[in-house]
């Protein structure tokens, strides 16, 4: 069951002349604390592009994880597989959902043990050389 999380979202646009904070919105950002014995976890959010331009996410990083990638789970003939998405494009006035069973954030190799309630920072690099910083807290899954 998807958890609806009240998130603390701090949006910082650095070196940004054209993009406004309202142009791109990350709704219901959820990052799960890695399970015991696990070096990976998932994150989900709805990304809404309110601008009149296509927005492309080139990369995501986090001080709490050595690697953050966007992956997509694909179910084909009953076989689950996962592919890495190098860049994520959100067309103008459209949204892209990162959700269970589909596209998701893949957070790999935490720099230290992350418990429920700890702050997670995500740094979003856009193709326009703009950077967004999102903050939320890790929640336990299930």
């Amino acid at each position: 069951m998807k958890k609806i999380l009240t998130i603390t979202l701090i949006l910082v646009l650095m070196g940004c002349d054209s993009l406004k904070t309202s142009d791109i919105i990350f709704n219901d950002l959820t990052v799960y604390a890695p399970r015991a014995g696990n070096r990976v976890t998932a994150g989900f959010t709805d990304i809404i592009n309110n601008s009149s331009d296509t927005i492309t996410i080139n990369s995501i990083s986090s001080p709490q994880f050595n690697i953050v990638e966007i992956h997509e789970t694909i179910m084909n003939n009953g076989i689950a597989s996962m592919i890495k998405i190098n860049t994520l494009t959100i067309p103008e006035k459209q949204s892209v959902s990162l959700k269970p069973g589909g596209k998701h954030l893949m957070l790999i190799d935490p720099v230290k043990r992350i418990n429920e309630g700890e702050e997670i920072t995500l740094i979003i690099e856009l193709s326009s050389n703009e950077t967004m910083t999102l903050k939320t807290t890790a929640v336990s899954r299930f």
Partner: peptide, 16 residues
């Protein structure tokens, strides 16, 4: 596998 972030934990949760 334990590095599976999506289908595996979800299925184990559903079974539980």
């Amino acid at each position: 596998y334990t590095h599976c972030p999506d289908v595996c934990p979800l299925t184990l949760h559903q079974l539980g």
